[in-house]
Amino acid sequence: MPDRPAADAYSRFQPWRRAFETGFWLAATLVNAVGNSVTVLVDHRRGGLEYAAWEPVVWEWSSGLAWLALVPAIVWFTRRFPLHWDTWWRQLPWHLLASVVVSLLHVLGMVAMRTAAYRLQGTGYDFGPWLPGLAYEYLKDARSYLVMVGMIELYRLVLRRMQGEARLLDAPDAGPPVEPLERPERFLVRKLGREFLVAAKDIEWAQASGNYVNLRVAGRDYPLRSTMADLEARLDPALFARIHRSYIVNLDRVASIEPLDTGDARIHLADGTLLPCSRRHREGLRDRIASAAAG
């Protein structure tokens, strides 16, 4: 494949990516905590409630810092259970469970910080009855969790679009095609108005994403407008295998298969990537890898 343009937007963004992601969550926490502190303080003063000026600051910052500490876990969880248009209903129960766990951790974290802050002021903090308090906090935290997951998934979608798009080779205007179109050896990848050839064997894995299938090539995702069934039919069955409703993997990239108690499995790739394997495909995949090794 020809060299990619060195100055494309995605490549320029990579050195700043970690700083941008970290800065975004820090800035969001700062703006939200300061804004809410001022708003709560003004509302209490208008209502004639007697609170020290530092108390709303402690409330909002303790909540914001607790959310900030949970960001890495939420990001990891969304990688393990991504919400895509075609699979969201299967992942939704996991996210509902995660929202409960996240809310509980958020409440415990902010209560611990508030208790410590109040003690430094020579007084005590009272969260109130725990059961009603946890229920009340969950109603707010569930919305916050949903917004965070939505922003994370939207950010990943933007990154995928920055990396480019892929399509199957078209038939020529005249004469026979260079290779059979029903099983192309190469795909066309479009990036910033330029097209590059990607060898099919270089595709590490593919993941369904709504009306697209994301092709992972050299650490980058290239959205291909196709269904998983159509893509599977076009890929070489000696090299690629369906491991899940939403995943196809290059067998040459598989390092090991980890069985799970549920009957499913986890696929470990040579680069450390983990992919889900459903029980429906687990035994077939194991047999194919064993046959390939014996051959």
Rank of each mutant, 00 (worst) to 15 (best):
Arg160Cys: 03
Glu179Lys: 08
Val40Lys: 05
Arg12Glu: 09
Arg242Glu: 00
Ser278Asn: 03
Thr262Cys: 15
Glu182Ile: 09
Thr262Ala: 04
Gly64Tyr: 03
Thr39Pro: 03
Asp236Ile: 03
Arg266Val: 06
Pro82Asp: 07
Gln207Tyr: 04
Thr273Asn: 08
Arg143Asn: 12
Gly272Glu: 10
Ala265Pro: 14
Ala265Gly: 03
Tyr138Gln: 08
Phe81Arg: 03
Leu49Asn: 10
Cys277Leu: 14
Ala66Cys: 01
Leu97Ala: 13
Pro15Lys: 10
Val111Ala: 12
Ala241Asn: 00
Ile243Lys: 00
Gly284Asn: 03
Ser209Thr: 13
Phe77Gly: 09
Val198Leu: 15
Tyr118Met: 06
Ala255Val: 09
Leu251Val: 12
Trp130His: 14
Val102Ile: 12
Thr227Glu: 02
Leu188Ser: 13
Tyr212Gln: 02
Gly219Cys: 02
Leu30Glu: 02
Trp205Asp: 02
Arg45Cys: 00
Tyr125Lys: 05
Thr123Ser: 13
Pro172Glu: 01
Asn211Gly: 13
His106Ile: 15
Val217Cys: 01
Pro93Phe: 01
Gly164Pro: 05
Glu137Met: 11
Arg143Gln: 13
Arg45Gln: 04
His84Asn: 12
Ala116Gln: 08
His95Tyr: 06
Ser63Ala: 05
Arg288Cys: 08
Gly48Val: 14
Ala142Ile: 00
Arg45Gly: 00
Leu49Val: 14
Leu285Glu: 02
Trp59Gln: 09
Trp76Val: 05
Arg280Asp: 06
Val149Glu: 01
Ser63Ile: 13
Trp16Gln: 03
